[in-house]
């Protein structure tokens, strides 16, 4: 089965937007983490994850997203999400992500609020 996750990065002055496409499982979560940690090492302190083309997540993938959030919080930065499907939004709330990362309905609102 080919459920490989793809991540595209739009680098901005003070951060970046990461566009995910595909299933966020353990492998997909690690792919996002690798890109996020590269950006953090390059002093990006605001990362917006646009999940518009991700329709399925699992609890292992989300656990990796929580690790990314924790690492960014340690650096004094911020992770945010936008364009979630209703079921992914509900899943994020149950998993506790919503308490540590802001979730925006669309990218425009996120970019404006985060000054990306």
């Amino acid at each position: 089965m080919n459920e490989e996750l793809r991540v595209a990065v739009d680098r901005r002055t003070n951060g970046a937007i990461l566009y995910t496409k595909g299933y966020i499982n353990n492998v997909g979560g690690e792919e996002i983490a690798n890109r996020a940690y590269e950006l953090m090492d390059a002093d990006a302190r605001i990362l917006l994850l646009n999940l518009r083309e991700t329709k399925i997540v699992n609890s292992i993938g989300i656990s990796i997203l929580i690790e990314i959030i924790e690492k960014m919080m340690d650096k004094g930065g911020k992770i945010a999400f936008c364009c979630l499907t209703p079921v992914i939004h509900k899943t994020f709330q149950i998993m506790g992500l919503a308490n540590y990362a802001t979730i925006y309905e669309n990218e425009e609102a996120a970019v404006q609020d985060l000054a990306l």
Partner: peptide
């Protein structure tokens, strides 16, 4: 873990 509390596994 309590609902809404960030927790890596067991959900």
């Amino acid at each position: 873990p309590a609902p809404g509390m960030a927790h890596k596994r067991g959900r």
